[in-house]
Amino acid sequence: MSRHEFQPGRLIAGLVLLTAGVLYLVDAADDGDLPWWTLAPLVVAGLGLAALVGVVTMLVRSNHRTRPAARERQGAGDTENPPPGE
């Protein structure tokens, strides 16, 4: 089995939806009185948090991947154009 990147946004989204599903099942099994509008903010806020974490993860990874290439270009530029005194 090949390894894949850890995606924390998907983890958070899954946990939020799993929590909402468990709450709904507990409410249905116990004949509880959990109104639907209590789960809606939980799901919306959780998916919003998951989206935010996903975007931050994407930005961090893209910045981390482009940084070494920029260093190589700067290093190569220094050897091609030595200072005027040399």
Rank of each mutant, 00 (worst) to 15 (best):
M1K: 05
M1W: 00
M1D: 01
M1E: 01
S2R: 04
S2I: 02
R3E: 14
R3Y: 15
H4V: 12
H4Y: 14
H4G: 14
F6T: 01
Q7L: 14
Q7Y: 15
P8Q: 03
P8Y: 02
P8R: 01
G9T: 07
R10W: 15
R10N: 11
G14Q: 12
L18R: 14
L18C: 14
T19H: 01
T19A: 15
A20K: 03
A20Y: 02
G21P: 07
V22K: 08
V22L: 06
L23S: 08
L23F: 00
Y24I: 02
L25Y: 11
L25Q: 11
L25I: 11
D27C: 09
D27N: 10
D27S: 07
A28C: 03
A28T: 08
A29S: 04
D30F: 13
D30K: 11
D30L: 12
D31I: 09
D31R: 07
G32V: 12
D33E: 04
D33Y: 13
D33Q: 08
D33V: 10
D33A: 12
L34N: 10
P35R: 11
P35T: 10
W36G: 00
W36I: 00
W36Q: 00
W37N: 00
W37Y: 12
T38D: 03
T38V: 06
L39W: 09
L39E: 01
A40C: 05
A40Q: 03
P41L: 15
P41N: 10
L42S: 03
V43E: 06
V43N: 05
V43P: 07
V44T: 06
V44N: 02
L47I: 04
L47T: 04
L47K: 04
G48Y: 13
G48K: 06
L49R: 10
L49N: 03
L49W: 02
A50H: 04
L52Y: 06
L52S: 14
L52G: 08
L52K: 05
V53F: 05
G54P: 01
V56W: 13
V56E: 13
V56F: 14
V56L: 06
T57V: 08
M58P: 08
L59K: 00
V60W: 15
V60Y: 15
R61Q: 09
R61E: 04
R61L: 06
R61W: 14
S62E: 05
S62C: 06
S62A: 11
N63H: 14
H64N: 04
A69K: 10
A69P: 15
A69H: 14
A70V: 11
A70D: 10
A70C: 11
A70Q: 13
R71H: 06
R71K: 09
E72F: 11
E72T: 14
Q74H: 07
Q74R: 03
G75N: 07
A76H: 05
A76R: 02
A76L: 06
G77P: 10
G77V: 09
D78C: 12
D78V: 11
D78R: 12
D78K: 13
T79K: 09
E80G: 06
E80Q: 03
E80V: 11
N81I: 01
N81D: 05
P82E: 00
P83T: 08
P83L: 13
P83K: 11
P84H: 04
G85P: 00
G85A: 15
G85M: 14
E86S: 00
E86Q: 02
